[in-house]
Design a protein around this nucleic acid. Sequence first.
DNA 1: ACCGATTGTCTCTTACAAGAGACCCATGTA
DNA 2: TACATGGGTCTCTTGTAAGAGACAATCGGT
Lengths: 262, 262
Amino acid sequence: MQDGSALTVSAAEKTPGTREKGLTRVLEILDFLHMTQRATGIGDLAKGVNAPRSTTYTLVRSLVDAGLLEMAGDGNRVYFGKKLYLYGMDYVRGNDLLRRGRQEVDHLSRETGETSELCMLQSGRYTIVHSSPGTRPFRISSATGLQIPLPWTASGRLLLAGLGRLEIEAMVSEDDLVLPDGRKLHLDDFITDIAKSEITGYCVTSGLVDAYTKCLAAPVFSAPGRVEATMCLVVPIDTSEERTGSLLGLLLDRAARLSTAA
Amino acid sequence: MQDGSALTVSAAEKTPGTREKGLTRVLEILDFLHMTQRATGIGDLAKGVNAPRSTTYTLVRSLVDAGLLEMAGDGNRVYFGKKLYLYGMDYVRGNDLLRRGRQEVDHLSRETGETSELCMLQSGRYTIVHSSPGTRPFRISSATGLQIPLPWTASGRLLLAGLGRLEIEAMVSEDDLVLPDGRKLHLDDFITDIAKSEITGYCVTSGLVDAYTKCLAAPVFSAPGRVEATMCLVVPIDTSEERTGSLLGLLLDRAARLSTAA
DNA sequence: ACCGATTGTCTCTTACAAGAGACCCATGTA
DNA sequence: TACATGGGTCTCTTGTAAGAGACAATCGGT
């Protein structure tokens, strides 16, 4: 833990003389497939995770044999396998919050017509765990499993509630503070936002990740003070004050309903 | 490949002096958690997969850091993590058949009131990939992700269609031919059943895995002749001929609908 | 026919992870 | 107070898997 060598997805280490652990390589492979979201040839995979070809071949073979990966129809491409799906369903089954959260999110988006999402911390990053697109002609959609820097989002401000300054610093890199449009946030402002959101019990951001959306987020508690997830609504930035208010009320109600039984 | 050392879930190797590959251990850990279906202490985990405690600790730590596993609320137990759920959803997204199959199955069970399942081959074993319980007072339910010997099921007979005798033999162990009630199937009879089912285009078994259920299965093709999955209905064994017939018709229709677009 | 790029397999070396086991710290219970 | 049990960490050794790289086969382009 002394040396911060735990970058979740290391892009490309240019040191050729390093010998990585097999398990590490496997985790990188899985992450890579998750990022690209498509079946990938083994050669490309090796390039993508910057691993030797020979190693990649053996690892992929193991994973395919185990059913974590599957050969895609084409012939020599691989993608996630049934086993991972089964494990994923196990996770859902064992996780009340997620199971009920998915229902609430689906329900909320049908009810309001807006895009609704369930978000959680995933190894220090903000992750959209489930999302249900709204019914607007131009949907504001976001991919499930997408990981976004915490400071970019309303949910991020809620999820970090109760953490100390040091912990927050550890979770937020310099890059995370730079918004997509190039603006740079101040860490102190972010921390202030977090404290403020904790008191108000919700968080609304406008035009943060992009210029045309507003994001309403409400905390879901697993224990008093412990924010386990957030529910959030993504609406057009020009949504009226009144509608925003009523949506927020609804959202808070649903999030609270999720919180009760932990 | 020469030495058949690829038992998917080896129960308990009593040779203490073997040094397993880390990845293998990890796969065993995941399988073990899938079998037990509960958060498990690391010590128990080590016992369960018959691995040294120290090794198990380091591996589990890696997996938790990576998000494949999570510490369960209690404190020192672990279970599947969010990352696996995300990967699983990726699999679903990349897999038309599964996505549409789940819908069809849900729909079919609501329509008929009977338990309905989507089944596939999973590394040589029959696997219930999705199931939707019926609405009967006494449900005939089966767990998703459950793996059952191929000869015990109607679906198993369909899934092996088109395979040669040798391939079938390779997939079916001696134990698989022994039914839960102790009866022993003959491999030749099983192979005959497979051929017969391929011609009729469906398979019905009565009182095979247990004494009170009848199982209707229909093949889902990914390519002409290639059975990718089966849809199946589990009904009480005393279901009338008429009702069985109409259910079978419905089932075949739905399975065919799944087959068309591959 | 020639050439470059890519896929899949195989061999050999050595850096390093799996494993054995000691150790400490809580609990529980006699 | 003593003792047993299980959780968690740490050190050291050595068997072995990650990696480099050569090789054959295939494909596509000119």
